[in-house]
Amino acid sequence: MVVRRVLPQFIVSLVIILMLIFYFFYINDDVAKTFSADDKALSDWAVIISSFALIVGGVDIFRFHLTQLRRGGLKQAPFSVVTLIAELTMVVFGAYGLALSYLNPALGITITTQPQFRWLYTYVYAPSDSAMYSILVFYIASASYRAFRVRNPMALLLLIVAIIVMLGNTSLGALIWPGFLPLRDWIMTIPNTAAFRPITIGAGLGVIILGLRMLVWREVSWMGRRE
C-alpha cells in the first residue's frame, strides 16, 4: 500500500512544493542560481518522462493492432498490417537517422533530417494530417446549419457576429463593404476579449483548485486503477 499509493502521492506533493519554492523564494544570489538549476533539472525530467510516455503510446498502438491482427478477422487484419508496417518503417528510419548522427556526425543527418523519414513525413504524414484536420469543415458546415437557425435573439447575435468575422477574414468581405475588416477587429478586441475573460478566470481558478487537490492528496485519478 505504501509503495503503491502513498509514496507516489508523497513524491507528487514534494515535487510541487519544491518547484513552488524554487520559483517564489529568494534567499540570495547563490541560492537563486542553485534553485534555478534544480528547477531546470526537474523540468528536463518531465521532458524525458514525457518522451517515454510518447513511446509507450506508440507501443500501445502497435500492441492494439497486433491483437487486431489475431482477432480482428479478414476485414480488419489487412488494415492493421498497414498500420504496423507504417509505424515500424517510420521508427526504423528515425532510429537509422539517430544512429547516423552518432556513427557519422560529418553527414549532419539527424532523426528528422533522415531522407526517407523526411519523405514519409512530407508525402504521407503532412497531407494526411491536413486532410484529416480539414475534413471537419464538412461537419462544421452541417453543425453551422443547426447553430445558425435563428430561434431566439441570442442565436441571431451569434449568426450576425459569425458572418461579420468570416467576411472580415476574407478579401471578398472587403470587396462587399470595406467596413467588415475594422468591424471584425473591433469584435475581436472588445466584446470577444471581454467574453473570454471570465472563462479564462474560471479556468484559472479550476487549475489552482486541481493543483491544490493534487497537493493534499485529494486528487488520485492520475494513479489509474485501484487496488
Binding site: 528536463d44 521532458v47 524525458i48 514525457s50 518522451s51 517515454f52 510518447l54 513511446i55 503510446g57 506508440g58 498502438i61 502497435f62 493492432h65 488494415f79 492493421s80 498497414v82 498500420t83 504496423l84 508496417i85 507504417a86 509505424e87 515500424l88 518503417t89 517510420m90 521508427v91 528510419f93 528515425g94 532510429a95 537517422g97 539517430l98 548522427s101 539527424t110 532523426i111 528528422t112 523519414f117 514519409l120 513525413y121 504521407v124 504524414y125 494526411s128 494530417d129 486532410a131 484529416m132
Partner: peptide, 25 residues
C-alpha cells in the same frame, strides 16, 4: 486504408520525435 496508414505513420513519427527529444535532453 488512408486512415490506418496515417495512424501508423503518426505513431511512428511520435516515437521518433520522442527518441530525438530523449537524445537531445
Amino acid at each position: 486504408f488512408a486512415e490506418h496508414l496515417f495512424v501508423g505513420v503518426a505513431a511512428g513519427y511520435s516515437i521518433s520525435l520522442a527518441l530525438d527529444s530523449l537524445n537531445r535532453v
